[in-house]
C-alpha cells in the first residue's frame, strides 16, 4: 500500500496550521516562509488551496539532478542535503513549483512526507489534508457522487 497526501480544498479554512507544522518539523521554528506546503488564498472566490509536492512516480526533479541528491525512498522523493549542491535545476524542472531553493541553507527543500508521518496532515483541523492509501483516494468522493446518482425519470422543463 502506498500512502500519499490527499488534499481537498473544499475543506480548507485557510488557517495555515499545515504551514506552521511543516516549518516546525523541518526547522524547529514556526516559520511559514520555510514551509514545504503552502496554502493559497483565492480571496475573492472564497477558496483556499493547500499545495505541495505530489511525489511524482517519474519525478522530474530526481531525473534532472546532476549529483543524484534526490532519491526515491519507498515512493518519497527525498533531497539528501549532504549531496545537494544548490544548483536549483530541479526547481526549474518541477512543473508544479513545489521544489524550492532555501537561501538560509543553500539547498533545495521539498516535501519529504516527514518520514511517513506528515506533520501537515496531523495538524489539519478539517481533514482538508489527509495521509491515506493513494490507490483508494477517490473512494470518498465516489461515494458522495454515488449517493447523488438518480436514475429515475428526469423532471421536464
Amino acid at each position: 500500500m502506498e500512502l500519499a497526501l490527499v488534499i481537498d480544498p473544499d475543506k480548507c479554512t485557510g488557517c495555515r496550521q499545515c504551514e506552521l507544522a511543516c516549518s516546525f518539523r523541518h526547522t524547529g521554528a514556526y516559520n511559514p516562509s520555510r514551509s514545504r506546503i503552502v496554502v493559497f488564498d483565492f480571496h475573492t472566490k472564497g477558496r483556499f488551496v493547500p499545495y505541495t509536492c505530489t511525489q511524482c512516480d517519474q519525478a522530474w526533479c530526481q531525473q534532472v539532478c546532476p549529483v543524484e541528491a534526490i532519491t526515491n525512498e519507498n515512493g518519497i522523493k527525498v533531497v539528501n542535503e549532504a549531496i545537494c549542491v544548490g544548483c536549483k535545476v530541479c526547481t526549474i524542472a518541477c512543473p508544479f513549483g513545489t521544489v524550492n531553493y532555501d537561501p538560509q541553507s543553500g539547498k533545495v527543500i521539498k516535501c519529504d512526507l516527514c518520514d511517513g508521518e506528515p506533520a501537515c496532515a496531523e495538524a489539519c483541523p478539517t481533514e482538508a489534508i489527509v495521509f491515506t492509501d493513494i490507490a483508494v483516494q477517490g473512494y470518498e468522493k465516489m461515494r458522495e457522487w454515488a449517493e447523488r446518482t438518480d436514475t429515475g425519470p428526469q423532471a421536464s422543463a
Binding site: T13, C15, R16, Q17, P125
Partner: peptide
C-alpha cells in the same frame, strides 16, 4: 460561501459571503 480561519485558528468562525 465558506467559513474561514484566521492564522493558526482551528475554530474558523469567519464568514466569507457573496
Amino acid at each position: 460561501v465558506t467559513n474561514q480561519g484566521c492564522f493558526g485558528c482551528t475554530i474558523a468562525c469567519g464568514r466569507v459571503s457573496k
